[in-house]
Design a protein around this nucleic acid. Structure first.
Lengths: 200, 200
DNA sequence: CAATGTACCAAACAACTGTTTGTTTTTTTA
DNA sequence: TAAAAAAACAAACAGTTGTTTGGTACATTG
C-alpha cells in the first residue's frame, strides 16, 4: 500500500502542450461538441487513442483549456489594470485587455467565452467556478468606481461584460480593432454612469 | 409529366407543430448539437424515423425553428415599437420586447440567440439572413435617434444588442424581470448617448 | 549499458448519431 | 363505405463518437 511509484520528470519532447493548444484552437473556432478527439489528436500529429495518455477525458481536456484560459486572460487584465491610476482608467484598461485577449490573442480565453459550462456536464461546476473567479475582478473594478447612483453595480457590470463578450459573435478582423471597440464601449459606459440619473 | 398529384389537406391532428415546439425547447435549453432527433421525436411521442415525414433533416428543422423564432420576436418587437411616440421610447420598447421574448416568452426566439448559424453549415446562410432581417429593425431604430455625435451608430447598436443577448447566459428567473433589465439597460444607453462626447 | 517508466501506436469496442426503407395504421374524401 | 393519401411504425444502416486495451519504441537515469 505504501510502495511509492518511482516518479520521473516528463520528457523534453512531451506533446501535452501541443494537444492543449490544438484543443483550444478547435474549441474556440468550432465549439466543444463539434470538435472531436480525432480533430485534436490529428492537429497534434498523433492518433486519437494516444491523447488519453495525457488527458483522462474530453471533459478534462476542456477543463484544462479553461484553466489555462483563465490564467492567461487574468494575467493580461491584471497587468493592464495595474498600470492605470484612477478607478475609471483601471476599468477601461481591464476591458481593453479582456477584449483584446478574447478576440485576438488567445484561443484559450476565447473558449471561456464561447463554450458554456453546461456543454460538459460532468465538469460544469468547476468551469463555472473558473468563470466566477475571473469575473470577480470586474466586480471589484466596478465596486471601486465613484458613482452618483451606486445602486445596481451588478447590472452595470453584466451590461458591460455582456456587450464585450457578445462581440465575439460579430467581430471580424477586417473592422475595428479590439482595443478600439473596447475603448469606445467603455467610454459610453463611463458617460452613462458619471451622469446622475434624473428623476422623472 | 403533367400528371398532377392529388393534393389533400393535412390532417387535423397534424403533429408537425408539436415537433417544432419540442425542437425549439430542446435547442433553446441544450443547444443544437446536444439535441438528438430521438430527443425531439420522443418529446412529441413518436419514433425517430417518423420525424422525417415532416422535416427533411435536422438542419431543416433548425431552419424552421429559426423562421418561427424570427416571426415571433419580430411581431413582439414591432408591436411594442408601434405603441411608442418618440424614437427613444420606440427603442426602449423594442429592447424590452426583445428581451422579454428571448428570456421568458419564446423558446423559438431563444434559439436565434443561442444557436450559432455555423452549427448547421448547410443552412447557415439562411440562418444568417434571418438574423440580419430581424436585426435590421434595430438598425433603423438607432438611425432614428437624434444623437449629438451621430457617428458609430453601428457600434452602439452592437453594444446594446450584445448586452441584451448575453443576458441569456446569466439570467435567472429568480432575479430581476426581463422588462426591468431591459429598462435599466436602455436607460443607461440613453444617458450615454444624449450626452455629447467631450473633446479631450 | 541495462532497466525502467514515458509516450505513443494499432486496433478495436460499444454506444450513439442522423437517416432510410418497407410496411402498417389512421384519417379523409368521393 | 371503399379508395387513396397522410402519418406513423418497426427495424435497420452506415458512419461517427469517446474511450479502452495490449503492445512497442524511445528517452532518461542509475
Amino acid at each position: 500500500m505504501t510502495e511509492q511509484a518511482a516518479l520521473r520528470a516528463p520528457r523534453q519532447d512531451n506533446r501535452r502542450r501541443q494537444l492543449l493548444a490544438a484543443a483550444a484552437r478547435r474549441f474556440a473556432h468550432q465549439g466543444f461538441r463539434a470538435t472531436t478527439i480525432r480533430d485534436i489528436a490529428g492537429d497534434a500529429g498523433m492518433l486519437p487513442g494516444s491523447l488519453y495518455y495525457h488527458f483522462a477525458s474530453k471533459n478534462d481536456l476542456l477543463l484544462a483549456v479553461y484553466e489555462e484560459g483563465v490564467r492567461r486572460i487574468a494575467a493580461n487584465v491584471d497587468r493592464a489594470a495595474a498600470g492605470a491610476a484612477d478607478p475609471w482608467a483601471r476599468l477601461e484598461a481591464a476591458c481593453t485587455a479582456h477584449l483584446e485577449t478574447v478576440l485576438d490573442r488567445s484561443d484559450y480565453a476565447q473558449v471561456i467565452v464561447r463554450v458554456l459550462p453546461q456543454d460538459a456536464q460532468k465538469v460544469s461546476d468547476r468551469l463555472i467556478a473558473l468563470r466566477d473567479e475571473y469575473e470577480g475582478r470586474f466586480v471589484r473594478l466596478v465596486d471601486d468606481l465613484a458613482l452618483p447612483n451606486p445602486s445596481d453595480r451588478r447590472n452595470l457590470r453584466l451590461l458591460l461584460l455582456g456587450a464585450l463578450n457578445w462581440s465575439q459573435v460579430w467581430y471580424r478582423p477586417a473592422g475595428d480593432t479590439p482595443s478600439a471597440i473596447a475603448r469606445q464601449f467603455t467610454r459610453y459606459f463611463r458617460r452613462a454612469l458619471e451622469r446622475p440619473e434624473e428623476v422623472r
